[in-house]
Amino acid sequence: MSAYKTILVHADASRHAPARIELAARLAMAHEAHLTGAAMNGLPRFLYEGTELQVALQLAGEQMAVLERQAHDALDAFDAQCARLGVAAYERRQLNDDPEGGLILQARYADLLVVSQPDPDETRFTTLGDLPAYVTLNCARPVLVVPYAAAGMAYPPRAALVAWDGSPPATRAITAALPMLRRAGHVTLAIFNPGQRWGLHGEEPGADMALYLARHGVQVDVHTRDGVEDEGNALLSLAADRGAGLLVMGAYGHSRFRKLVLGGVTATVLSSMTIPVLLAH
């Protein structure tokens, strides 16, 4: 990807929304991109197709008004924050949908989707509690996940860590992250247990991808390590050691009837991350 032209950010009532929106805004300003804030009322859009629900909605008019007001207020806060930060081009979209369905739909028209890591203390703000995993596995765009435990994240990052295993998801993640990686001070390409993936890395693991990144103007070095059993925690530890402000990785898993089955590395990173993580499936 050469540049971000449209960035989509989830706007909601969470206390972590300002940090999420601020990072999305700084990305938009740095890349001269259009920023869209999307807020949902929480009801899946397919429910609106049933006649039975129309009666229920009339009976529950007051509750519906509350949900609509919450979404409206979240977008008012989004507008105010964008104006305060000086975002040149932004818009708001209020949708009759749940957060998962609404974001997946709107992400089709964006280059990057920005969401927050779920906070266990705020499960009431999502119906699933695993919003980043669900949208990553079900939308066709890269997803930047902002940790709930961090605030005031700098962009561009001083350093970035890229997890490389030769797979299609990792390839998509790297391609999607190129605009950010070019702006990072330095990038480390991490390859764990390269011998276990015979035929994917060539004679010198990481050399081909490092060359690809260098040709895109990325300052990169290669870090390989064998004998790693817990790759998720190893990635997070290496990111801390390198002072990385961004982790880029492929996401593994599948979703069936909204039941998520995540790969172990993806699940570990999403549960324990303390820096922004860009995921692609």
Rank of each mutant, 00 (worst) to 15 (best):
4 Y>T: 02
5 K>T: 14
10 H>I: 04
10 H>S: 06
13 A>Y: 01
13 A>S: 14
13 A>Q: 14
14 S>T: 15
15 R>V: 13
17 A>W: 03
19 A>K: 08
21 I>N: 05
22 E>G: 08
23 L>N: 06
24 A>R: 02
26 R>A: 05
31 H>E: 10
31 H>Q: 05
33 A>P: 09
38 A>R: 01
40 M>A: 15
43 L>E: 07
45 R>Q: 12
46 F>Q: 05
47 L>Q: 09
51 T>Y: 08
51 T>R: 12
54 Q>V: 11
55 V>E: 14
58 Q>P: 00
62 E>W: 09
63 Q>Y: 14
65 A>F: 07
66 V>P: 00
69 R>D: 15
70 Q>H: 12
73 D>E: 15
74 A>W: 07
78 F>Y: 13
78 F>W: 09
80 A>L: 11
80 A>Y: 03
82 C>R: 09
83 A>W: 00
87 V>N: 01
87 V>S: 01
90 Y>L: 00
93 R>Y: 03
94 Q>H: 11
101 G>D: 12
108 R>E: 15
108 R>N: 14
109 Y>V: 01
110 A>V: 08
110 A>Y: 07
110 A>L: 09
112 L>S: 10
116 S>C: 13
121 D>S: 13
122 E>T: 04
123 T>I: 14
124 R>E: 15
129 G>M: 04
131 L>Q: 05
132 P>W: 11
133 A>L: 13
133 A>G: 13
134 Y>D: 11
138 N>P: 03
140 A>S: 15
143 V>N: 04
147 P>S: 05
147 P>R: 02
150 A>C: 02
150 A>E: 12
153 M>Y: 02
154 A>Q: 13
156 P>N: 10
160 A>Y: 04
160 A>V: 06
164 W>C: 04
164 W>F: 07
170 A>K: 05
171 T>H: 10
173 A>M: 08
175 T>D: 11
179 P>G: 10
181 L>W: 04
183 R>W: 02
184 A>D: 02
185 G>T: 11
187 V>Q: 04
187 V>C: 13
188 T>D: 08
190 A>C: 02
198 W>E: 14
201 H>A: 10
207 A>Y: 04
215 R>K: 10
215 R>T: 01
216 H>R: 12
219 Q>P: 00
222 V>Q: 03
223 H>A: 12
228 V>Q: 07
229 E>T: 12
238 L>I: 03
240 A>K: 10
241 D>V: 07
244 A>M: 01
245 G>L: 08
245 G>K: 05
253 G>N: 06
255 S>V: 13
255 S>N: 15
256 R>P: 00
258 R>A: 13
259 K>Y: 02
264 G>Y: 02
267 A>F: 01
267 A>W: 05
268 T>Y: 01
270 L>M: 14
278 L>Q: 10
